[in-house]
Structure formats: C-alpha cells, structure tokens
Amino acid sequence: MNRARSNPFNVAGMHGALILYTLIALFPVFVILINSFKTRKAIFREPLALPDAESFSMIGYQTVMKQGDFFLYFQNSMIVTVASLFFILLFGAMAAYALSEYRFKGNLLMGLYLALGIMIPIRIGTVAILEMMVATGLVNTLWALILVYTAQGLPLAVFILSEFMRQVSDDLKNAGRIDGLSEYTIFFRLVLPLVRPAMATVAVFNMIPIWNDLWFPLILAPAEETKTLTLGSQVFIGQFVTDWNAVLSALSMAILPVLILYVIFSRQLIRGITSGAVK
C-alpha cells in the first residue's frame, strides 16, 4: 500500500472525525435511556450522570404501564408491519416475475406504470384515501393501514425484485417446463427461493418506514384499539408532557423494539443498501 494512503496522522484524524460524529449520533439516545431509570430529582440535578443506587427509579415505567396500553400498541404495530410486508413481498414478487419473465403487449408500459409510485409520495392522495376508507368502512381498522402500506411499498419492491429475477437462469425454468410443472409451480418452487436475498432487502427497506409512520395512523386509524406504537407514544407523551419520568420511559420503550430489530437486521439492511439495490 502506498505511503500516502496509510499515513498514521491521517488515520488518527479519520478516527477522530468518526468518533466525534458517532458521539453526536448516539448522545441523545443515550441521554434518554439513562435518565428514564432515574428519580425526578436526579433527572434535573445531574442529567448526564448514570443512574446509581441512590438515583435509580422505575417510577416512569410504572406510570407508563399503568396509563398507556403499550402492549396493545405494540401488537398493532407488529400486525400492520408483518401483514404489509407479507403482501408487498407476495404481490410484488408475482408482478415482478410477470414483468421479467414473459413478453407480452404492454409489458414496458405496465413496468413504467408501476414505477411511477417510486417517486410520487402516496401522502398526496390522503384526502381521497380517507374518503374511500370511510366509504368502505375500513376507517379505524388495521386493514386500512395494511392496504396503504402495501400500495406504498409495491413500486420499489417490483422494481428491485424484477432486476433480480432477470438474473435467474432460463435453463432452470425451461427444465421445469419440460418436466411439466405449471407456471405457478415454477414461480413458487423454483424462482422464489432463489431471490430470497432480494426479498429480504425489500423487507428491511420497507419495515422501518412502516413501523415509524405517524401520518396514516393519525389520519386513518386514530382509535384507541388501533393505535400503533408510534401514534400511541405520540399521544401518551402529549398527555404526560410535564411528567418527565413517564415521558422518558415512554421514549425508551419506543426506542427499544426498533433498536432490537436494527441489531438483528442491520447486516441485511447495510448489505442491501451497499449492494446497489437502489441504484
């Protein structure tokens, strides 16, 4: 390696810059987490100190558990996210297969039509979406959210998955056809298992925006039984704005599931982004 590219002074400077920025990125999360375990007095007296035997307190978490139905909110978020991902992947993969495998009239046009939604945010259509959900009686149900997120996720899913499906070998599919397999069997048995890594990438890309969305839960499903974790914590924090213990604990509880998901999936996510799936 060239000397200029591994100068020790440069290396120290690079680590310095990265450490500085990492601290900036993690500091707020750290402050919220440590203070959620402290007494009210300690939160204000020494906000940057770690909780110790004297200042440790779970009072905030007790309030949250008593007042907010966080378990229900969590369950709602989970249902909406998992169901939306399932439909995005299933419908997206089917459409991507049709577009990449078969030549038919209007193939290109259909691909362009489905790709429109990559750049245009679905939020623009909110007024009519709400009207439609009211008319069909889906307002304040989790189905309203699942449908919206599925529609929102499909364009990019079709785009990414059809790129990958073009790489599946034709010989394999033709061998299946010679063996008398139906087109459906070829898709579900032969092609889907081969594009599993691409499906994981699509899933991880969609998971975080769906889980964190505030706009559609606020507008389409604000009822107590259908609140998602994001909306639930927003409302809870708004009500308890002067109870710092409760607010900090609620924030920590909202951070935790996402952080766990991130730790599990961060490799997949980063590999997905860096493999150029969104180029």
Binding site: F87, L90, A95, L116, I120, V127, A128, I129, L154, P155
Partner: peptide, 24 residues
C-alpha cells in the same frame, strides 16, 4: 397466468395509490 401474477399488485396499487391521487 400473466394476468394472475400481475392482478393483485396492479389492483392494490391502482385502487389505493393511483386512483386516490387523481381523485384528490
């Protein structure tokens, strides 16, 4: 089979995204 493969995605996308967009 092409219709079956395309239909779910196109229907959901058209009904919940494109149609409301123009309706708005």
């Amino acid at each position: 089979h092409i219709v079956v493969f395309l239909a779910p995605a196109v229907l959901v996308y058209t009904a919940v995204m494109i149609f409301p967009l123009f309706n708005t």
